[in-house]
Design a binder for these strands. Structure first.
Lengths: 116, 116
DNA sequence: TTATCATATTGCAATATTACGATAAATAAT
DNA sequence: ATTATTTATCGTAATATTGCAATATGATAA
């Protein structure tokens, strides 16, 4: 038997689909620029990529990369709007996160054996 | 004026405290092993570090490191319990996340100009 | 067609994360 | 005191992330 150690990569195959799904969503929100993009999409009247670039203190390629990560995680979706691209929050992913934290909250209030 | 480019580091100073706070918590949950730790602490009757090590498919130093990250983010807290250490979920951080997602959900249902 | 505008991709440098063996530190048991 | 048990830290290797200049792509305008 040969064991090859691959370091720096998470062993996703050892965890449940649910755990991996939450981790992917959480990771996508694990950068302030991406939280700021969500905030913008939530509050602004538009969702044009160029507006987001102007709003953030980051260069256009960097913002494009962050948008791509949010999109890959399923947190936002993009629509071609003429020349521009309109990004919007994908409610399904957010519902998933909301349900996850609601479940934790409920479960915590049931538990009485917390030792800390 | 001298501008020093520091790459690979996020420019946290350009974002709001709230955005940074959410990002820190989300980042800590952005790995399936750490989600699995939270799941364990939520469902198990104990919260001993050794039990967590046995539960996870990772070596003890790796689990210790993940626990440290969860603790640094404020998601868990640890108590010395004789020879062992008992880790528990910190409700404050989870409330923060729950509020964040609840706020997004509420705001989304108010919005009608979603273009996607 | 050519120029312009908006966004994506490439390439690369710097830093961060992940993982684990070896070892340390701290307490408990003998 | 010595040994075992439990958890943390160190050192290090591999991979991932972050950021941006340069460039490519694609759609609209002239």
């Amino acid at each position: 038997m040969i064991i090859i150690k691959i370091m720096g990569a998470s062993k996703t195959e050892h965890f449940t689909d649910q755990q991996n799904a939450i981790a992917i969503l959480a990771k996508a929100l694990g950068h302030p620029a991406r939280v700021a993009i969500m905030d913008y999409l939530l509050e602004a009247d538009a969702c044009i990529c160029g507006d987001i670039v102007n709003e953030l203190p980051l260069a256009q390629p960097t913002v494009s990369q962050h948008l791509k990560e949010l999109k890959n995680a399923g947190l936002i979706k993009g629509n071609i709007e003429g020349n521009a691209i309109c990004y919007c929050i994908d409610e399904k992913a957010l519902d998933q996160m909301q349900n996850y934290f609601a479940h934790i909250s409920t479960r915590l209030s049931q538990k009485k054996n917390n030792c800390c």
